[in-house]
Write a protein that binds this DNA or RNA. Structure first.
Lengths: 147, 147
DNA sequence: CTACATGCAAATCCTTTGCATCCAC
DNA sequence: GTGGATGCAAAGGATTTGCATGTAG
């Protein structure tokens, strides 16, 4: 994965220290391009025959968040997930009932960003939003049981 | 606060059981019209000379959430806050640096709701959103230190 | 060489759960 | 009276912290 290399380069240039552990976490995030929980990351490491301490993972993720390399999103029942910001930005609809996760294009956030910038002089960092609600199936099911 | 009474009435009509504890939590949420953390609620109770078990508070808040009487929002460093949905709906900008919380009108969410409903057949429950980013002051401060 | 990252263990914080008791309806 | 809510204590899970050791620059 050369995108891992690219990220490592950037971090190095910013004067960040690159360790084996940091490198491995970044590579894990690059490969499994989906959202990963702490646990996913830990298991990924193990499957490669490398044990990485939980505390260290937390510290590395904090570091990557501060460096704005990854986003952190609370998907509710699905837990907290981490993902590289670099790729195509997107968000998620999360069903409050069945916990389905639907991908949502980033375009809807444009208006939001503009409004917030202009009206509040605030620079939003809307990297990965989770919007909760009811999916079509669960709405139908709910309506059917209602009375 | 008659709004507490109104909420209690509604819940009663839905067949919900009203206890002293539930009543007190609802009253606390009505009085302190701001966002309250679990801790705030607990302290509020204490200041009125009433001790309420933490577990009970959690159970009551879950109940109120399920009944869609309150919203729950993770304000990051500011913790998880609860607030009555009834009043004028609004959202928040939260500075990642200084943790300032800025109120944001609900109107920006209209377009979002429409888009999500139409394009994804998903009924969003956007009661109280937290949008993270950088406030004007912190941006200025950051730019100043940059190099 | 030195400052900073890691591993390990313990601590902390937040939230949930089991169960006996109590109370709203 | 009875089902559901509470209080208490304990468990559980996620995240953080202190400190000795290791290592990147």
């Amino acid at each position: 994965m050369d995108s891992a290399e690219r990220i490592l380069q950037q971090l190095r240039q910013r004067g960040e220290r690159i360790t084996i552990q940091r490198r491995m976490v970044i590579e894990a995030l690059c490969e499994d391009c989906d959202h990963l929980t702490i646990n996913d990351i830990q298991k990924q490491m193990e499957s490669r025959g490398y044990e990485l301490d939980e505390a260290t993972i937390y510290r590395i993720l904090q570091w990557l968040k501060a460096a704005e390399v990854i986003s952190q999103t609370d998907l509710g029942a699905r837990g907290i997930v981490y993902e590289l910001i670099g790729t195509k930005r997107h968000h998620h609809l999360v069903c409050l009932n069945c916990h389905a996760v639907i991908e949502l294009d980033d375009s809807f956030a444009d208006q939001l960003r503009e409004q917030v910038r202009h009206e509040h002089d605030f620079e939003p960092r809307v990297d990965h939003l989770a919007i909760f609600g009811w999916c079509a199936q669960c709405r139908a099911a709910k309506a059917a049981t209602k009375n």
